[in-house]
Write a protein that binds this DNA or RNA. Structure first.
Lengths: 233, 233
DNA sequence: TCAAAAGTGTTTCCCCTACACCCATGG
DNA sequence: CCATGGGTGTAGGGGAAACACTTTTGA
């Protein structure tokens, strides 16, 4: 018997799923992508995009695959959240799920709408419909993680286009934290962090003064170990 | 066909394990519990306590069970860490593992030694032996989580006996963070947090002035949302 | 000229930090 | 009386918070 078989015989095996909480900011609200279930249980209910992990597929790869089945987005920020392993999560029987969350910006979103097959839509996190399984709990958990992490990392930039105004950036923080932020303090702190580069472009919207566009200099999401915490203002 | 069967037929199923990083403080060092593997692969190598999740067992319950197979500890602080889902972690084939970490104090430890069957021992996190699988990585991850979380929660108390001196508490922080801490600042900050209650007891050790014993007032691990961050001093 | 958002500095206060000596006890 | 850890206060600096007016543009 090959060594490969030693463990896989005689031990319990489990159905393992992935579920992805995909966040974006749209119309000044934080939203999540939900898909309508085509089969029982919870047929017709809204649920998180997700599915079963393949036999020879890594869990991370499965999460990415599910995301790409629902969208045409690439280069998404995707992070593992938590594994929900209670025995009674799924009425059909024992299904573990490894939850992820992901962040995209509206530019990336435009691509998506054309390609969708099954019904999917964006819902404000403060106005969620009834959800299948324990997906409401998973979203709550994702939101908590996002709120914490925005304070000491640069994930907020994942929700913005490549070029953005400082007001857009501030709105991202406000929408996620659910609080107002002082404009002058916010701008000073952001500029002190040294992760913004001003461009020579401006964004005109209506009849106000045009706003300067900035880009994010760091190539990836980074941890801010300086005291550059954003939270209370 | 009952609904229970709908999903469990025709889909990939996976072996799912739990692994637990059990920390304690002993002799002024942060240590983890390791057990010697009895079978191939990695036979004879040190590894984290852990095992396969049963068919009808929740993942949390499995982690707790593994802990109790190795120790007689109850009321342990146990927290899920991360799910390692690469396809090549285990040479026998595909095995997912859900990693946990746990914290115990020396009082609880004394109970343990009598009951152990298989070989197990405590190793300083800075002097780990060669480890089976990707367990080294799991320990590193657990340590990182612990170092972060000690700054904004009260988990450090899980490593101390019910009554402890302020010096013991400070040593716990120093051992975990790997840095020295200013005694006066530490004591002031801890007392300001309002989570310590002085007892009327003192601990005598040798020929010095006896140290007052304190207890932790909060019933559970709590988040410190005040600015009571502990880190830099 | 008006509406609407962009952009900009200063002061106050509190918290973090650095730092050194006396106390109580057992041997 | 001496060695050992227990226990205590203060002064200075820096970052966070509060706060309001001018600028630029299109209509």
């Amino acid at each position: 018997m090959p060594a490969t078989q030693a463990l896989t015989n005689g031990f319990a095996k489990h159905a393992v799923a992935v579920d992805v909480v995909l966040f974006t900011i749209q119309g000044g609200r934080l939203k999540v992508l939900l898909v309508r279930r085509q089969q029982a249980p919870y047929k017709g209910a809204w649920s998180l995009p997700g599915g079963i992990v393949g036999a020879e597929e890594s869990v991370d790869a499965a999460a990415l695959r599910e995301l790409q089945e629902e969208t045409t987005i690439s280069n998404v920020y995707l992070e593992q959240l938590y594994t929900f392993g209670d025995t009674d999560r799924d009425p059909r029987g024992r299904v573990l799920t490894v939850a992820y969350y992901a962040l995209v910006n509206q530019q990336q979103l435009e691509l998506k709408a054309r390609q969708r097959v099954s019904e999917a839509d964006w819902f404000p996190v403060r106005r969620l419909p009834e959800l299948a399984f324990d997906h409401r709990r998973i979203i709550d958990y994702a939101l908590e993680r996002l709120r914490n992490k925005i304070n000491y990392t640069t994930i907020a930039f994942q929700l913005l286009p490549t070029n953005f105004t400082l007001t857009q950036l501030q709105e991202a923080y406000e929408v996620i934290l659910g609080t107002r932020v002082d404009k002058r303090n916010f701008r000073r702190k952001m500029q002190q962090l040294g992760i913004l580069r001003p461009t020579r472009q401006f964004r005109v919207s209506g009849r106000q003064r045009p706003a300067r566009l900035y880009t994010f200099t760091a190539p990836k999401v980074i941890k801010l170990q300086e005291k550059g915490i954003i939270v209370p203002f």
